[in-house]
């Protein structure tokens, strides 16, 4: 089982690659407003990259209910069980 910290490290890589506007450094409290270039469009691409990385699928309501990175990490942990 991965820890929250490990998942955040992996998300940093995914975000940096998808957004492609320099290094991204996330914390559980980070929201879309805090990251330059994180908009609703690359949000969907980020979600797709996360799905590929961890090997499961999200549903649309799951994605729409996320408030910050902490929520995303918890969802990943829950879905990986």
């Amino acid at each position: 089982m991965k820890t929250q910290l490990q998942i955040i490290e992996e998300l940093n890589e995914i975000f940096t690659e998808v957004i492609d506007e320099g290094e991204v450094s996330l914390t559980p409290e980070t929201t879309a407003n805090d990251v330059d270039g994180w908009d609703s469009l690359n949000h969907i691409q980020i979600i797709y990259a996360v799905e590929k990385k961890y090997g499961f699928k999200f549903t649309l309501p799951e994605i729409q209910n996320l408030k910050n990175i902490g929520d995303l990490v918890n969802l990943i942990i829950e879905k990986s069980r």
Binding site: L41, I47, Y48, E51, L60
Partner: peptide, 16 residues
């Protein structure tokens, strides 16, 4: 737009 682009997320930019 959101449901369709979510549905076609595997298509990458073309999906958008």
């Amino acid at each position: 737009f959101t449901p369709i682009s979510f549905n076609k997320r595997a298509w990458g930019k073309f999906g958008i």
